[in-house]
């Protein structure tokens, strides 16, 4: 089997992984970014990015393409749409195998594998996924032109994507399990002042109803336990993310929420293995904080390599 050696391997190509790649390659280190999906990670699900400093309003996809170009221009190799079939993070010389036929070794690894949207866990969710249940407003909003939809969640993603959906839909009901939102004041105000948006708080969707497509939901009030049915054409789910750490759990220390634990230098419990972005334990998950993590991880990885 063909084996190649790099100075650094970055797993994941969202904001954190690409930033780490930019810094590593720019330090003249032979760097490989390996990515099981495609470039951009969860950034590409974001319709409009208006708070990334230095860039006027753009899309998550456009930012990710620029980051990719920067990484490549500095000499980073990027392997996209491959499968990580084996890895060894514990040995001093790290090893990964992709697609069962290529092996790469390196002195450091940065884990930037991100997360995926959390499912709601309501009855019939798998049955209606794609048929009235969506996790991406920017992808699917157009299919709900002049329809009535529900957005589930109370964080920034839920409220901001609800506001962006008002371009298409007739009405939005935001269903949230608590009596207050976790989103920022700005996001809450934007949603509250929009005439198309109404709110059902302290309530959870327990079941999706319909034949071929979602036609309604069962909603349970968390305080009274009372359940009622609400007609809807679709449900957009924004209830947070699950970190992509399942395969690392035997070797990397994780939090209770299965996020990778790191120190302030982004170092994990294993020497030479760093973590960055949404995959690590932290409170704030933004493109800016992923970029920050990627920078810190890469610069500390460079220092580690120089020792």
């Amino acid at each position: 089997m063909n084996t190649k050696h790099c100075d650094a391997i970055v797993l994941g190509s969202g904001a954190a992984g690409l930033t780490a790649g930019i810094y590593l390659a720019r330090a003249n280190l032979k760097t490989l970014i390996v990515n099981e999906g495609s470039i951009g990670g969860q950034m590409v699900l974001t319709h409009a990015v208006a708070n990334y400093p230095g860039v006027l309003e753009t899309s998550g996809r456009d930012i990710s393409l620029i980051m990719k170009k920067q990484a490549k221009d500095f000499g980073c190799d990027i392997e996209s749409n491959v499968e990580l079939t084996k890895f060894d993070l514990i040995s001093k010389k790290k090893m990964i195998e992709i697609d069962d036929d290529e092996v790469f070794t390196s002195d450091v690894v940065i884990l930037a594998t991100g997360g995926k949207p959390r499912k709601l866990g309501a009855k019939n969710e798998d049955k209606f996924k794609g048929f009235g249940i969506s996790y991406c407003a920017t992808c699917d909003g157009d299919f709900y032109t002049d329809k009535d939809v529900i957005v589930v969640g109370g964080g920034n993603s839920a409220l901001e994507e609800a506001v962006s959906l008002t371009k298409w839909v007739r009405s939005i009901t935001i269903v949230h399990q608590f009596d207050n939102f976790q989103a920022t004041d700005h996001a809450i105000k934007q949603a509250e002042k929009n005439d198309k948006i109404s709110f059902i708080l302290e309530s959870e969707i327990t079941e999706y109803l319909g034949e071929r497509q979602v036609e309604g939901v069962k909603i349970q009030n968390q305080k009274t336990g009372e359940t009622r049915e609400l007609k809807t054409d679709g449900v957009f789910v924004y209830v947070g993310y699950i970190p992509n750490t399942d395969r690392f759990k035997d070797v990397i220390d994780l939090s209770e929420r299965e996020e990778i634990l790191t120190d302030k230098n982004m170092l994990t419990n294993i020497n030479g293995v760093f973590a960055a972005g949404d995959v690590r334990e932290k409170k704030i998950r933004q493109i800016t904080t992923a970029v920050s993590d990627g920078t810190i991880a890469a610069l500390n990885a460079i220092e580690y390599l120089q020792k």
Binding site: G37, S38, I39, G40, M43, V44, L45, T46, S59, G60, R61, S80, N81, C136, T138, C139, D142
Partner: peptide
Amino acid sequence: YADWCGPCKQVAPV
């Protein structure tokens, strides 16, 4: 697919 959809563009090169 549709042109406005980021994940669709991920699928295109595959």
